[in-house]
């Protein structure tokens, strides 16, 4: 089975206090931030590796990131993927989820064909959860997100359970598919030392805009139909106020405060 795993380097949660947002563009400043594999993408990779162990084939990592993120892809290779395709070009900077999906879909087509495209449902930084579905649409593959369980039979028929607000939904479909994986699906394996050694010799292909043959106006900030709105720092200051008077009177004033601040409807 040929499987592509969409892998996104995201800022290390341990360094969230160092995250800054460019006030001019409203976009995360990624330079200088240590990155890790997006946590849900690790679950997607684990699912891919388990399928490879079951059916054979290969697992390829595909992602869009600055070239400095190559270490994050190397980590995915150490986990067990065979090769990585890193889409990296100045023109990709500032992409929203659709512009990102165009790049990823083009890379999946170029590196493919694949039977299955897996990714985390949601990224820990942007958190739009748009990408798996958008990539599916662009590829013309059926797609499901928030996958908490799935099986692929030897006949290529997939049974997929997706999480919904108050329950879950069972779906069945034929490959090729794009699935957005949630963390409930599995427990990612530890990377072994042998995996780290093997990863040093595995290929990381870096693809530019030209390599993917994409229109410059369809990628990056220029190709993004959504733009971040106004950014502001919420006022987290607390102010204490002592209410004095008779109990009944204080209680009424308190209820009034609760109503005015929306705590009580």
């Amino acid at each position: 089975m040929e499987i592509a795993v969409l892998l996104k380097p995201v800022p290390d949660p341990a360094q969230y206090d160092k995250i800054q947002i460019d006030p001019a563009t409203g976009i995360l400043v990624r330079e200088g931030l240590k990155t890790v594999i997006n946590p849900e993408d690790k679950h997607a990779l684990e699912a891919a590796l388990q399928l490879k162990e079951q059916y054979g084939g290969r697992v390829a990592l595909i992602g869009m990131a600055p070239a400095s993120a190559v270490e994050t892809f190397r980590e995915g290779l150490a986990m067990g993927a065979e090769e990585a395709f890193l889409c990296s070009d100045r023109a990709f900077a500032g992409a929203d989820s659709l512009a990102t999906s165009r790049v990823l879909a083009a890379a999946v087509k170029k590196a493919g064909p694949f039977d299955l495209v897996l990714s985390g449902s949601t990224s820990a930084d942007g958190g739009t959860a748009h990408v798996p579905s958008q990539v599916g649409e662009l590829l013309g593959f059926a797609h499901l997100t928030h996958v908490i369980q799935f099986e692929i039979g030897s006949d290529g028929l997939a049974s997929v359970r997706t999480k919904m607000e108050n329950g879950y939904r069972e779906s069945r479909g034929r490959l090729p598919l794009v699935l957005g994986i949630r963390r409930e699906l599995n427990t990612p394996r530890y990377i072994s030392l042998m995996g780290i050694m093997a990863a040093q010799g595995k290929p990381v292909h870096v693809w530019s805009l030209d390599d993917l043959g994409l229109d410059k106006g369809k990628v990056g900030l220029a190709g993004s139909p959504t733009q971040p709105g106004k950014l502001y720092q919420p006022d987290m200051k607390r102010k204490g106020e002592v209410l004095q008077g008779e109990a009944w009177e204080v209680a009424q004033r308190l209820v009034g405060i609760f109503r005015s601040t929306g705590i009580l409807g």
């Binding site: 270490e71 530890y190 990377i191 990863a199």
Partner: peptide
């Protein structure tokens, strides 16, 4: 090296 840094990260996670 990059591999040694990855090793440290992997061991730290395990620990």
């Amino acid at each position: 090296s990059e591999a040694q840094e990855m090793l440290r990260k992997v061991v730290r996670e395990f620990v």
